[in-house]
Simulated scan of single mutants.
Amino acid sequence: MGRVSTEQARTSTGAPRVLVVEDEENTRVLFGDILRHLAYEPILARSAEAARAAIESAVPDIILLDVRLPLMSGYEFLRLRAIRDSKIPIVAVSGAATESDARSCLHFGALDFLRKPVALDLLRAVLQYAAVRAREGHRDLEREAGNRRRSVRPQVTLPVRVVEQGGPTWSGTCVDLSTFGMRLRLSEPIAAEPAVRLHFTPGDGGAALSLLAPLVRREGNDYAFRFVNLTEIDFKRLTEYVQRLTN
C-alpha cells in the first residue's frame, strides 16, 4: 500500500479529521495546509490503497477524494463496499471536471463534487456541511444544522425549469433558496436520480443559472435539492443574492 501521513492523536479542540486522497504531492500538501487553516485535522494519502489503510487506522470524519488517481481510481474507491458501508461523507474533486464525472460520483455515493482549483470559501462551506453530515447522529447537532439552514433560507418565489438527464422537463416554483440549495414546489412527481439540472434566474439582474442538483428529500409536492459542482462565480453570486434577501 502507499504511504500515509497522519497525525494519530486528535487535537485538543476535537477538530474533524479530513482524509485527503491526492496523488500529486504539491496539491496534497497544499490541501493539508488549507485544512489546518480552516481548523481541520488533515490526514494525507497519495493513493486509494493508502486511503483504505488510513480509514482503518485514523478514522477520518470526511474524505476529500481526487477522482483521477493511478491504479485504483476515485470512482473505484467510491464503489468499494467497505467505503459505502462506512458512511463517511466523501467530497470528490477533479481538475478535469465534467458533468458526467459529477453525476458518476453522486451516483456512487459522493456527497459533493468540486472542481480544482477549489475556492477557499466554497471549500469551507462544503466541509462545514460534510462535518454536520458526519455527526448528524447527535440530535443537538441536527438541531443546530437545522437552525443554520433555516436562518439562511429566505423565502423567495422564482420559476424553475427542472431537466432530468435524458428525460422530460418539468416546471416548478422555488419557495426558498440558500447558497447550497432550494426547496421546489412541483405539481407532478419526478424521479430526480441521481441528479437533475435546475434552470432559474435569481432576481439580481444577472443571467440564468443552470445548476446540477441531487434530490435530498421530498415532502408531498415539495422537493429539496442541493446544488453540487458549483463554480466559484456561481457560489459567490448565490451567496450575495441570499444575503441581500435576508437583509
Rank of each mutant, 00 (worst) to 15 (best):
N229W: 00
L114K: 05
A125L: 06
G146S: 13
P214G: 01
R10N: 14
R3Y: 14
V228C: 11
L211T: 04
A82Q: 08
A119C: 06
A191S: 09
R148Y: 13
F227Y: 05
S12T: 15
T27Y: 06
R197H: 11
L186I: 02
N229I: 04
R161E: 12
A131G: 07
S178H: 00
A50N: 10
S187N: 09
Q155K: 15
R135Q: 12
D23W: 04
L209E: 08
E164V: 11
R185Y: 10
F31L: 13
E142A: 12
G32D: 00
V175C: 13
L122H: 13
I83W: 01
I55L: 15
D140L: 11
V18K: 03
L44M: 03
T239R: 12
G166C: 02
T239Q: 14
H37Q: 11
S151H: 09
L44I: 01
L64W: 02
S104P: 05
W170V: 11
Y223D: 04
G32C: 02
R143V: 09
E136I: 09
R10Q: 10
T98L: 00
F200A: 09
F31D: 11
A130H: 03
L198G: 08
V18S: 00
V91H: 01
S73C: 05
S171I: 06
D101R: 08
C105F: 07
P89W: 01
R139Y: 07
V59I: 09
M72F: 06
V152M: 06
T157M: 14
L212M: 12
E41G: 08
E188K: 09
D85Y: 01
Q243F: 03
R217S: 10
A125E: 08
E76C: 00
I62Q: 03
G109W: 00
G146E: 12
A39M: 13
R3V: 07
H37D: 11
L245P: 11
F225H: 13
S12L: 15
A39N: 15
M182Q: 10
A191T: 11
H138R: 12
L19V: 07
I62R: 02
G166A: 02
A224S: 10
G181C: 04
G137A: 09
L198R: 15
E142D: 04
L30W: 02
R183K: 10
V228P: 08
V242I: 06
P89S: 05
T169I: 10
P194C: 09
E76W: 00
I43S: 12
E41A: 14
G181K: 09
L141W: 10
P168F: 07
L127N: 08
